[in-house]
Amino acid sequence: MMAAVVSIDLGSGPDAGFLALFSLGPAFACVTGSIRRALLVGVVALLLCLGTSWHDHLLATHRSMVAMLSVTGATAAAALAATIRRRYERELANMRSVAEAAQRVLLRPVPLRAGRMRIAVSYTSADASARIGGDLYEVVPTPHGTRVIVGDVQGKGLQAVETAAVVLGAFRESAPDAKDLEEVGERLERALNRRLSGEEFVTAVLAEIDDDHTMTLLNYGHPAPLLLRSNGAVEFAEPALTAPPLGLAILGPEGPVAHQVDLGPGDQMLFYTDGVTEARNTARSFYPLADRAFLLDQEDPDEALETLREDLVTHTGGPLHDDAAMLLLRYRGEPGSLGG
């Protein structure tokens, strides 16, 4: 930029009055550079201003003095702006570190296996700076079988994270000793009623996988899980009756009715949040999850889920506008079969 100013000034002559434009160098240097870089560019700009003034026979004139004062002032402002920017960058880095630590505590790594079930999980936050949002998931092995929750807190930000922490804490406490999923759901409802107010709520699916790999589901107003059979058939595990989300039980109707799904070797069940199915592309079309389920037909469940996540991001053509959590359960067959 400063080289362009020199060229223009030399080509236009001393009467054009381009000397003050050298201040643009340090002004832009503070946008991405360090304090040292802003000062260095300022010194270079001042030397170029002096050299050009000497060449134009304007040294010690009023125009030259104003130009050099402008460069000096811009350099001082650039150094101050770079100082403030670097301070905010450090604060943002600290916030990201805290968010990552909170994510490790809130969304702990799930077990890779539970009986003959192979488990994979994916979480993409819409807030790239925070890397955490209001979607939640957990897998807890219990004496009654493996119990799972996938949910989505209404709203965003810190309040959604706090609500997610309440749900996960209540699930981790109740899942090991509750006699059935209905009791787990009741305890989650009580925990939320102590925390929520107004019209806040949490949609969720609770699941229990028995030793014979029969899966029992309770759906609290959440998108139905996607069932992908080993023969390629795709269906949604829709509940027979629609139930209100957690936190809205007082409004009725009654809570969800448990329904069962029988799994065979190689069958997969994908739990997800609405950030997946409501993701839109530039044509405002929703992500066709059922049509893209074939992407899960890979040997490694983690790679399969990552392929699906990348396809989701490609569909939107940019960052997601809502958090997207996916949890994949695969009934492993005999060694050598898919996911075995």
Rank of each mutant, 00 (worst) to 15 (best):
M2P: 10
A3G: 15
V5W: 08
I8D: 14
G13N: 13
A16I: 10
L19P: 08
C30Y: 10
G33I: 00
I35R: 15
L40A: 15
V43T: 13
V43C: 04
V44T: 13
L48P: 08
L50M: 12
T52L: 14
T52S: 12
H57Q: 14
A67I: 05
M68I: 03
M68K: 10
L69M: 14
S70P: 00
T72A: 15
T75H: 01
A78C: 09
A79R: 03
L80I: 12
A82G: 04
A82L: 03
I84M: 11
Y88F: 13
E89M: 07
E91D: 12
L92R: 14
L92G: 03
N94S: 13
M95K: 09
A99T: 00
A101L: 12
L107S: 05
L107H: 00
V110P: 04
V110C: 10
L112H: 11
A114H: 08
M117T: 13
R118V: 14
V121Q: 13
S122H: 13
A128L: 15
P141A: 02
G145N: 05
T146I: 04
D152H: 08
V153N: 03
V167I: 02
L168Y: 04
A170C: 04
A170N: 05
F171L: 01
D177F: 11
E183I: 07
E183V: 09
V184S: 07
R187N: 11
R187L: 00
G198I: 00
D210L: 12
H213E: 11
T214G: 12
M215N: 07
N219F: 02
P225R: 04
P225D: 06
P225S: 06
L226P: 05
L227S: 12
L228A: 07
L228E: 08
V234L: 07
A240H: 12
L241D: 11
T242E: 14
P244M: 06
G247F: 00
L251C: 04
E254W: 06
G255C: 02
H259L: 00
H259A: 06
G264A: 13
P265R: 09
P265S: 12
M269V: 15
T277G: 09
N281W: 08
D291G: 09
R292V: 03
F294N: 10
L296R: 07
Q298H: 06
E299I: 11
D302G: 11
E306T: 09
E306W: 00
L308N: 05
E310K: 12
T314Y: 06
H321D: 14
H321E: 14
D322S: 03
D323P: 07
L327E: 03
L329E: 02
R330P: 08
E334V: 10
L338M: 09
